[in-house]
């Protein structure tokens, strides 16, 4: 009996000691993980560094470096097809991510932190449905369906393509928002309720602000997914609706010029800027 107590005491002592010298024994440390993280970043940036470098290459061949120049940026800017395609992609991605994030936020509130109710699994399955179908199938199916609507109503336009994008963006926007909601501490909301806040006040003052990182994450994910889509866009797009990835596919087939590298670099800078803004905004919120 006394032995056990002794052992227990020793343990506690070690505990205290450990706590005292945490810098030397970091419980969070795992060997090699930092290395992997650095490797991961290198792996991610390797192709991109190459891309950016070659966008400043004078030589029209993308393999041979001659000298530094801005020629391809000028050329890309004057290439109307590239410019239109890039703007169209941004426009679609903007509206698709906006709409899908709204829908996903609402759906996440209704499906997270609730008592299980009839239809919860169904709702969950429906929201994730676009993830379950291979894109080519969604593409063909949507094409046939929209063609029917177009012929029946006589309404044409970019709305169809945006709608198709909204559909597959919803599950992507939904995931981070849901994850954020699930992780949120209920204490604040309970406290608000205890202080006689109405559910709406609680939502507006407590829940929603706490959800913002998740919502931003969801919106960004949706934006990227929309910006990258090829298969569905190829099939659903109407006349004059050539997005940047569609332009790219054609170019890869028949020979790439560094103009594309230039546009990609421009996209990259724009997104870096956006992410930086998000980054600063969320950080300020925390302080």
């Amino acid at each position: 009996m006394s032995e056990v107590t002794a052992a227990g005491e020793t343990l506690t002592a070690t505990n205290i000691m450990r706590r005292g010298r945490r810098p030397r024994f970091d419980v969070k440390h795992q060997p090699g993980f930092g290395f992997m993280a650095v490797l991961c970043v290198l792996m991610l940036y390797g192709p991109i560094v190459l891309l950016v470098t070659y966008s400043f290459n004078q030589n029209p061949s993308i393999t041979i470096w001659t000298s530094f120049s801005f020629d391809w940026y000028v050329k890309a800017y004057h290439n109307e097809q590239i410019r239109d395609a890039a703007f169209l992609s941004l426009k679609i991605a903007f509206f698709a991510s906006l709409a899908s994030t709204c829908a996903a936020t609402m759906a996440a509130i209704a499906t997270t932190r609730v008592k299980p109710y009839r239809g919860l699994t169904l709702a969950y399955t429906i929201i994730n449905q676009p993830l379950m179908v291979p894109e080519i199938v969604t593409g063909i199916a949507t094409l046939v369906f929209f063609a029917l609507i177009k012929q029946m109503t006589g309404i044409y336009g970019l709305g169809y393509l945006i709608t198709a994008h909204i559909v597959f963006c919803i599950p992507f926007a939904y995931m981070p928002i849901r994850a954020r909601l699930e992780d949120m501490d209920l204490t604040y909301e309970t406290a608000a309720a205890d202080l006689y806040a109405t559910p709406w006040q609680t939502f507006k003052r407590i829940t929603f602000p706490m959800m913002i990182p998740g919502i931003l994450g969801g919106a960004m994910l949706a934006f990227v997914i929309s910006l990258d889509d090829v298969v569905i866009t190829v099939l659903v797009s109407g006349p004059g609706e050539e997005t940047f990835p569609l332009y790219m596919i054609g170019a890869i087939r028949r020979g790439v010029t560094p103009e594309l590298n230039a546009v990609a670099t421009a996209f990259l800078c724009l997104s870096a800027l956006l992410v930086t803004v998000f980054f600063l905004v969320t950080r300020k919120k925390k302080e």
Partner: peptide, 24 residues
């Protein structure tokens, strides 16, 4: 409230995702 919150996402996916799928 939940139904109202779910409506936009579920409706748009049902109309533009599931209906075409039934064609397939």
């Amino acid at each position: 409230r939940r139904l109202m919150l779910l409506a936009p996402a579920v409706l748009i996916i049902t109309i533009c995702g599931l209906a075409p799928l039934s064609i397939v």
